[in-house]
């Protein structure tokens, strides 16, 4: 069966002889986009997070055939060495990783999460279900689908807060 995906803006057609291929394995093993990581392969760790049609999902819990016609953005699609996305830069500035294995998933998840906040989506911390202010607690809650076994959570939260504020604070710190 043919599956056509638009991956990072480019149309890619895969010939799959078996529907069992997950979107994650299709990206890594068929399209050589190994930036997206396989952690638990069961939707618990978030290392495989990619953005599909504008929304973050666990690519391990989706079959590639279910995404025929979809637009996929992976870590390779948001920035490259020398031209990193603001969220990638913020993770570097704040040392938001140690081993780095969960980092692509963290960055893709955080990128889409900020869009969700801009759209006014509530979280379980939003008492009145109104638009949320992006407190550290809100960042932690909204990022709970991404685990970091090196436990770099404080720096991850700093990086995301910084990126959400447009990097102003870190830039000011750099200047000082």
């Amino acid at each position: 069966m043919d599956v056509t995906l638009t991956v990072n803006g480019a149309q890619r057609t895969l010939q799959l002889d078996d529907p069992r291929v997950s979107l994650l394995d299709a990206l890594r093993q068929r399209l050589d986009l190994t930036g997206t990581k396989k952690g638990c392969d069961h939707g618990q760790c978030g290392a495989c997070t990619v953005i599909v049609n504008g929304r973050r999902i666990n690519s391990c819990l989706s079959l590639a055939v279910m995404h025929d016609g979809d637009e996929i953005t992976t870590i390779e699609g948001i920035g490259q060495p020398g031209d990193l996305a603001p969220m990638q830069q913020a993770f570097i500035r704040h040392d938001g990783f140690q081993c780095g294995y969960c980092t692509p998933g963290q960055i893709m998840s955080a990128t889409a999460m900020l869009d969700e906040v801009r759209q006014g989506w509530p979280s379980q911390l939003s008492g009145d279900l109104g638009p949320a202010e992006l407190t550290d607690d809100e960042i932690r809650e909204r990022m709970s689908g991404n685990l970091c076994r090196c436990s770099c959570y404080p720096n991850i939260v700093d990086a995301i807060r910084d990126a959400a504020q447009g990097g102003d604070r870190a830039n000011a710190e750099d200047a000082a």
Binding site: G43, G46, S109, M113, S144, G145, N146
Partner: peptide, 8 residues
């Protein structure tokens, strides 16, 4: 669940 799971 998580944000990723709720999106699917």
């Amino acid at each position: 669940a998580s944000g990723q799971i709720r999106n699917r």
